[in-house]
């Protein structure tokens, strides 16, 4: 089987790419051939290539971060542009958000599912993970790895991702409060060292207005 991993993040070596390649390894272990493309990098000259890759794949996996509660703009633009190339494919999503709670991925997951309905592909479900903040959540926890493995086994058979796989994948690596604490500490540290203004700067507040 051939699969296409679409990485929908403007960060070329960010968490979406990282998680996508971890899932790709599990798919390869199931004898699935995986081609990976970052869709934010694509442009007029490469559209033909993208179309060919879409045509060639039976399984398409969108790996994307959450920006302002749903898919980033370039991922949405891509889906709008290529919707008619997805008919008859199997589609799954791998979503990650910067908040510790997994449910912040749910609106984007619903959008992906709706895209599947409208574009005529078979929706295999998704894996959603939280805690994507800077320098945290790097690496793959044991439960996420297990969730990915179970998901890859199902997808390789053309089957939906089991709920259990999604639950394993979403299990938080650390408690929510601990994640927020560490992220804030890192942010303050980076700002102190490299920042050109304090973290709580208000550059857009009009002078003289009470805000």
């Amino acid at each position: 089987m051939k699969a296409l991993l679409l990485v929908g993040s403007p960060r070329l070596r960010g968490r979406s790419a990282f998680l996508g390649s971890a899932l790709a390894r599990h798919l390869k272990a199931q004898d699935v051939e995986v081609l990976s493309l970052n869709l934010v990098e694509q442009h007029k000259d490469s559209w033909q290539q993208v179309a060919a890759a879409l045509a060639d794949a039976e399984l398409i996996i969108l790996s994307a971060p959450i920006y302002v509660d749903t898919l980033p703009a370039p991922a949405t633009a891509f889906l709008e542009k290529f919707a008619d190339r997805f008919a008859g494919k199997n589609l799954a999503a791998l979503l990650n958000c910067g908040y510790p709670e997994r449910y912040h991925n749910d609106a984007a997951l619903a959008v992906c599912q709706q895209f599947a309905r409208q574009s005529g592909c078979m929706w295999l479900g998704g894996l959603t993970v939280g805690m994507g903040g800077i320098s945290l959540g790097k690496g793959v926890s044991r439960s996420l790895n297990k969730g990915m493995e179970m998901a890859a086994q199902a997808m390789a058979q053309g089957q939906p991702i089991p709920v259990k796989a999604a639950d394993y994948a979403a299990r938080p690596a650390v408690p929510h409060g601990a994640y927020a604490y560490v992220l804030n500490r890192n942010f303050r540290r980076i700002n102190k060292k490299h920042g050109k203004a304090p973290l709580d700067a208000r550059p857009y507040q009009h002078e003289g207005t009470e805000q």
């Binding site: 920006y67 302002v68 749903t70 898919l71 980033p72 703009a73 370039p74 949405t76 633009a77 889906l79 709008e80 908040y99 510790p100 609106a107 984007a108 619903a110 959008v111 992906c112 709706q114 895209f115 409208q118 927020a180 992220l183 804030n184 942010f187 303050r188 973290l199 709580d200 857009y204």
Partner: peptide, 24 residues
């Protein structure tokens, strides 16, 4: 658009995050 915003609107919305602090 698939139940969500158009890419045109989302492009501007993604650029609104400086209006929030990054701290949680």
């Amino acid at each position: 658009v698939f139940g969500g915003y158009s890419a045109e609107l989302k492009r501007a919305m993604d650029r609104l995050i400086p209006n929030m602090s990054g701290l949680l």
